[in-house]
Design a protein around this nucleic acid. Structure first.
Lengths: 235, 235
DNA sequence: ACAGTATTTATCCAACGGGTTAATTTCTCC
DNA sequence: GGAGAAATTAACCCGTTGGATAAATACTGT
């Protein structure tokens, strides 16, 4: 009877624990905001003791900042893989829009975290040293696409790449992050499949029509496999 | 000495009190979100005792919903005065964009309240009976403008008015509601006068170019009587 | 001027929440 | 096989917070 205790009461796994804590914290913060998040719930969700949060990451604010930095890190690193250089400019913009849209759809917590941080007027993000540096390559990528488009005659105007990116992100972001209230006030479900397809088509049409000067309607087919035919022929 | 007490210890003003409470609550909720808002701070800001909130409005959640309903009420009533029917369609769209932009600039708490409510997935708004009914007139107003534009040949395509409004609101909303984080990651102050002017010009250009098929640059000067002096950024 | 009601104040409290302390269990390396 | 370090748990601390109670103060009609 004395030796029955050979079942381990817990495993040691500091690295996995840290990841589980950050994942649980991401869910909690995005679901409830910073003030609404509960440290106890994060611990429970991570399958951990509350003390672990402080041991592995720090207090609530540090935990929050770590989650936020991780979120930015993830999207920027995916964006780096977009490889817009090898597409002709209208296709590159289309891909950027589709990527942004799908990323936001796949990562709703990212939207919530941004909302939360902006509610706090970026108070925490300002303290981060990591995040500030990672964005200029992305802007340069877009600037290059725009310049190529102007040179080739595809685009009519050399828009500021930051404005363009903010517009694209805004078109996607607002629709999704505010879909709850918009669905209520407009009395439509904005998140069913049909609505989402229509939205993507609308955004692509809006941006590409504005940049190229060609008809809005030409771009309205989302993810068209053979874009080239549709895009050059004026109606 | 017995009669020195003829200074009133407090005034009776139930209506004013209610308004001050709602105003203070609006500020508090928009600054800190629902969970982060403090009932005591609202009371202090309203120059009232905490008990007054419960007496005049209700508990924290009811207070929050009252604030939210008031915010929607205000913007929709201002929109009703836009009078887009008497403008030719491109001018009507320009005015709608400029109104939305300026309204958001003048009422930053409205943006915060929407963010907060969407973080809660519109849980409270769904309970509101007042809000749901007030939006179809607005959509019809936009639909009429679009139809007139298509009929007159000014617009190339009959966009869904809800999509169009969400796009316009999104272009304005995202820039402003996320200006804090965007300013950090792009290393620019997005809220100084020059940046705001550029943003408005960009949005007007984008939307009107897409709708009319004319050059983006033609619209880039806000409210310009003479559009031809296009502002084009160096590439 | 007095009774009854509406409005406001002063206190209180039970639950909760972030954070800490100290003890317990596992791992590592000798 | 044991000592010391790393990881984890359990239990507690204490200020805060939303909400409640009861008393005080102003107003109203009669």
């Amino acid at each position: 009877m004395a030796k029955a205790k050979r079942t381990l009461k817990w495993q040691r796994d500091p690295e996995g624990m840290r990841l589980r804590i950050l994942e649980a914290a991401k869910q909690e913060f995005s679901a409830h905001g910073l003030a609404g998040a509960r440290v106890d719930r994060i611990a429970a969700k991570a399958g951990a003791n509350k003390r672990m949060l402080y041991y592995h990451v720090g207090n609530k604010d540090e935990l929050y900042l770590a989650v936020l930095e991780g979120a930015y890190d993830k999207i920027r690193s995916e964006e780096r893989g977009l490889d817009l250089e090898h597409l002709d400019p209208p296709e590159a913009i289309r891909r950027l829009i589709e990527f942004t849209w799908n990323y936001f759809l796949r990562n709703p917590e990212f939207l919530s975290l941004l909302q939360t941080e902006n509610l706090a007027r970026a108070k925490h993000l300002k303290k981060s040293t990591k995040v500030k540096s990672m964005h200029s390559p992305f802007v340069e990528m877009i600037r290059t696409v725009v310049r190529r488009g102007v040179d080739s005659g595809d685009f009519q105007v050399a828009v500021d790449p930051v404005q363009l990116y903010i517009s694209i992100a805004g078109l996607c972001f607002f629709y999704l992050s505010n879909s709850a209230t918009l669905s209520v006030i407009f009395g439509r479900d904005l998140l069913d499949k049909k609505a989402k397809d229509e939205r993507l088509a609308h955004m692509v049409g809006l941006v590409l029509a504005a940049l190229t000067g060609q008809s809005f309607a030409l771009f309205e087919i989302a993810k068209a496999p053979k874009p080239r035919t549709a895009m050059v022929q004026p109606v």
